[in-house]
Design a protein around this nucleic acid. Structure first.
Length: 439
RNA sequence: GCCCUGGUAGUGUAGUGGCCCAUCAUGUGGCCCUGUCGAGGCUGCGACGCGGGUUCAAAUCCCGUCCGGGGCGCCA
């Protein structure tokens, strides 16, 4: 007999036999009668064990099965109003496919909390909890929603190398590795490759892939390995086009999640607000003014740091009732390392670069790139970049490069903020940070 | 990199110099219980991260070390 899920058994007639399988969540033994709670992907079903009907020996061996063992139950379906799913199983046979050790290093349904470190050390058990699995089912919907948008907008999905010879930014955040006796790095960003594809004439591309940063951080919004969504568009007139695409993309993806994940969102208690296109734009300089009005006082140069981001997030929420807003026209000084950022013609102290903030946290960074070879070289020299390391990148600017721009978005952060998760690591199956390489 | 916090049974905690051969819960073992769903009752098991030091006395104070959590910088 083929094994079916608990939800499917719901459709069976009373008295029909079926085979169900899953993880033995708990046994409530009342003496003479006992109830097994078995969990599969679709839900938790109940198996009724009666000593009178089974005989003492099989009753005793059944109630002795350790929690979280994998069991296969063949039995008769019986409707009842005494369980959540509306039925229970009277077993004909109970097979232990894989017995769980005792005690569990992490309780799946225990009435005590566990620390995040303990949970991540035993992530396979942690992920058995419905509320954890739902995060990843919603992540799946989010990625589907994003891909759905790009398909509609005529973008092609690409994959660029993750083993690279040079980084997009400074060297301090690069993971170094040995590449056939040559020095190589894990890619921080697909930035330079996306640009080369613009020169190749692909026009609209996007990539969803890992990015690596060797930063020594300790925050709830950083990880050493994250999934970056990057897109790049050619023949743009200004960075406004990039911002437009970004806000369409996000409204589309969040609507997709809401439409297809209503029940999941509800189970997690998330009230997902779908933003309206276009998103609010606040120039950097204006943000500084707002912050000053809010009572912010700088000793030196005014800057938008983490605290300021949160203040601005609260401000736009109150003032405009929105979770998303762009900080535009980043000063060239703030974007010092970003040598490929195009500056404003009318004021080279400003760039075309912007950030997108979601609930007071940085989610996206992007802008128009400098496509003019000579200007790019100047900016690289100014940034103190070793030009030789970027030969293969620079070459593509010499033989026909259209105007272009794009963004990088932290997918894990988007999910984190969307579901109000306390730490970005909760949105990653097996997160990496300076202290964690396993599991 | 700087700063703040913490490490006590499998899990989560109480205990800040003697009242601690360490509290409670959960778990786990044994026993009782025929409709549980945070089942219930009785009973047992199980821990002070590591190394030094101070003291008559250290889970508690000091130093070092290892390992968590968080803030800032930085960033997606």
């Amino acid at each position: 007999m083929k094994r079916i899920h608990a939800k499917e058994a719901l459709g069976l007639d009373d008295g029909e036999t079926c085979k169900l399988g899953g993880w033995l969540q708990e046994i409530k033994n009342l003496g003479g009668i006992a109830f097994m709670k078995v969990r599969d992907r679709s839900g938790v079903f109940q198996v009724v064990l009666s000593e009178d009907e089974m005989g003492s020996e099989s009753f005793e061996s059944a109630v002795d099965i350790p929690r979280e063992s994998v069991v296969l139950i063949e039995g008769e379906k019986k409707s009842t109003d005494q369980t959540d799913l509306g039925f229970e199983i009277t077993p004909i046979s109970i097979k232990v496919e894989s017995e769980a050790d005792k005690p569990l290093p992490l309780g799946v349904v225990d009435r005590v909390d566990s620390e995040a470190g303990t949970r991540f050390n035993n992530r396979f058990l942690d992920l058995r909890k419905e509320e954890k699995r739902l995060i990843f089912e919603l992540r799946d919907l989010l990625l589907k929603g994003l891909r759905d948008f790009f398909a509609k907008e005529d973008f092609i999905e690409v994959n660029t190398p993750k083993i690279v010879a040079a980084g997009a930014e400074g060297g301090a955040t690069l993971f170094e590795l040995d590449y056939y006796n040559e020095k190589a790095y894990l890619a921080q960003s697909p930035q330079l490759y996306k640009q080369m594809l613009m020169s190749a004439g692909f026009e609209n591309v996007y990539e969803i892939g890992p990015a690596y940063r060797a930063e020594d951080f300790s925050t709830v919004r950083h990880t050493s390995e994250f999934i970056s969504l990057d897109f790049e568009k050619s023949f743009i007139e200004s960075s406004d086009e990039i911002m437009d695409t970004t806000s369409y993309m996000i409204t589309h993806a969040l609507s997709f999640v809401e439409e297809n994940g209503k029940e999941k969102l509800e189970k997690l208690g998330v009230d997902l607000e779908i933003p309206e296109h276009p998103f609010k734009k606040l120039p950097y300089r204006e943000c500084i003014n707002i912050l000053e009005e809010l009572g912010k006082d700088w000793e030196d140069e005014p800057e938008i740091g983490t605290e300021e981001e949160k203040m601005l997030g609260e401000y736009v929420k109150e003032e405009y009732g929105v979770d998303f807003f762009f900080i535009t026209e980043f000063p060239t000084k703030v974007k010092e390392g970003t040598f490929y950022a195009m500056r404003k013609d009318y004021d080279p102290s400003l760039t075309t670069y912007f950030d997108l903030e979601y609930k007071g946290q940085e989610l996206v960074s992007g802008g128009q790139r400098e496509h003019r070879y000579d200007v790019l070289i100047e900016q690289m020299e100014e940034a103190g970049v070793d030009l030789d390391a970027f030969n293969s990148y620079l070459k593509c600017f010499k033989y026909g490069m259209p105007t272009h721009g794009g963004i990088g978005l932290g997918v894990d952060r988007l999910l984190q903020q969307m579901l109000d998760l306390s730490n970005v690591k909760e949105s990653i199956l097996f997160p990496r940070d300076p202290e964690r390489l396993e599991p």
